[in-house]
């Protein structure tokens, strides 16, 4: 018996030391700037002043390329941020949302639902869940490859997480690659079930938003190559069950006017600037109509937003012009006049 206890204590002490070493190594391997904390420019949210974001958009690359919160600020003074990066899963989003709540108190959380059905490669649901949850709980696993960026000089440097993104998480894409899929939301009467673990984490996100008095809004970014009515029905069922508002911008009734010949850079997987402007405008109209969101323009404490808005206007004007040029060329190719 005594040797059992001795062995258990021995193992416990070893695991404790190992855990400390793992978390210490994880700390040193975290990026030195929040610019590189996540894909696209999601990490920029850490550079925003506390409690300044009223609308938080969370999703994957569809959201990062499709929703431009700075446009809302320019139009109606709503402060928003798109926290999105490639292949972000529901599991990642749950943990990231939890950490964002430590610094921000968004009144509305918009969850882009394509993350519910997207999965990388041939991973099983369980593998994907375990991989993503481990990434979130053990920083060393998520940032392990950063050893390549370490030097003796920067190893012990303080982390600087004050970088702000002028575009507030939006990444403008100015190329065009037409989608020729035609009607992708035809009704075959089916409903794609939400995978069990994904559903569990969706429920946790719903509970987390309730706990922080945020209204959760489910939306689907137009994506002709990956979305369909069966998926819409799956999400609608979940929204109905939890009394959530669900706006699927792929549905004819909500179509923000996406022209699949010109508004996508990659055959309908994502939106380009032209598509993003339409979607952002439609979503912005919904936000101003249905949620009591303050106009922060000119308010004290939001000077940086006014400055960013000016820079954003220049960036987006230039990007839209380049995108329009590419769109005109695409149309001429499709019409055979190029």
């Amino acid at each position: 018996m005594r040797s059992y206890i001795k062995h258990i204590l021995h193992v416990g002490a070893f695991l404790l030391v190992l855990a400390m070493a793992v978390f210490l190594a994880g700390h040193y391997l975290m990026p030195h700037s929040n610019r590189y904390l996540s894909g696209y420019t999601a990490g920029g949210i850490l550079g925003e002043d506390f409690d300044t974001i009223d609308v938080l958009v969370m999703g994957d690359s569809n959201a990062a390329q499709g929703i431009s919160p700075m446009q809302w600020y320019c139009d109606s003074g709503i402060t928003g941020y798109t926290y999105a990066s490639g292949w972000l899963s529901v599991y990642n989003i749950y943990y990231r949302l939890r950490s964002i709540y430590e610094e921000q108190t968004p009144k509305v959380v918009i969850l882009c639902t394509d993350v519910v059905y997207s999965r990388m490669g041939d991973e099983t649901e369980l593998q994907a869940a375990i991989g993503d949850i481990t990434d979130e709980l053990i920083p060393l696993v998520r940032f392990h490859d950063n050893w390549k960026d370490l030097t003796l000089q920067n190893l012990f440097e303080e982390h600087d997480y004050s970088w702000r993104d002028t575009n507030k998480g939006f990444t403008p894409i100015t190329t065009v690659g037409a989608s020729t899929r035609g009607d992708y939301m035809y009704n075959d009467g089916s409903r794609e079930p939400i995978p069990a673990l994904v559903r569990l984490y969706l429920e946790r996100i719903v509970a987390l938003c309730e706990e922080h008095d945020s209204e959760l809004l489910l939306i689907t970014v137009p994506a002709s190559s990956s979305w369909n009515l069966a998926r819409h029905n799956g999400i609608q069922g979940f929204a109905d069950e939890y009394g959530l508002t669900y706006l699927d911008y792929n549905m004819a009734g909500l179509d923000p006017g996406i022209d699949w010949r010109t508004d996508t850079p990659d055959g309908g997987s994502h939106l380009n600037v032209l598509g993003a402007q339409k979607l952002t405008a439609a979503l912005g109209a919904c936000l101003t109509e249905n949620y009591a969101l303050e106009d922060h323009r000119g308010q004290p404490g939001f000077e940086s937003w006014d400055k960013d808005a000016a820079a954003y206007t220049e960036i987006i004007t230039d990007a839209a012009a380049r995108n329009q040029e590419a769109a005109d060329y695409q149309i001429s190719v499709l019409e055979g006049t190029a």
Binding site: F14, V17, A21, V22, A25, L29, L140, H144
Partner: peptide, 21 residues
């Protein structure tokens, strides 16, 4: 002993070719 064991685990976790890249 512990230094060797912990070093081995950290070597796998840090230098292992796994993850998004």
């Amino acid at each position: 002993r512990w230094a060797v064991y912990i070093g081995a685990v950290l070597a796998v976790m840090i230098f292992g070719a796994y993850g998004d890249n």
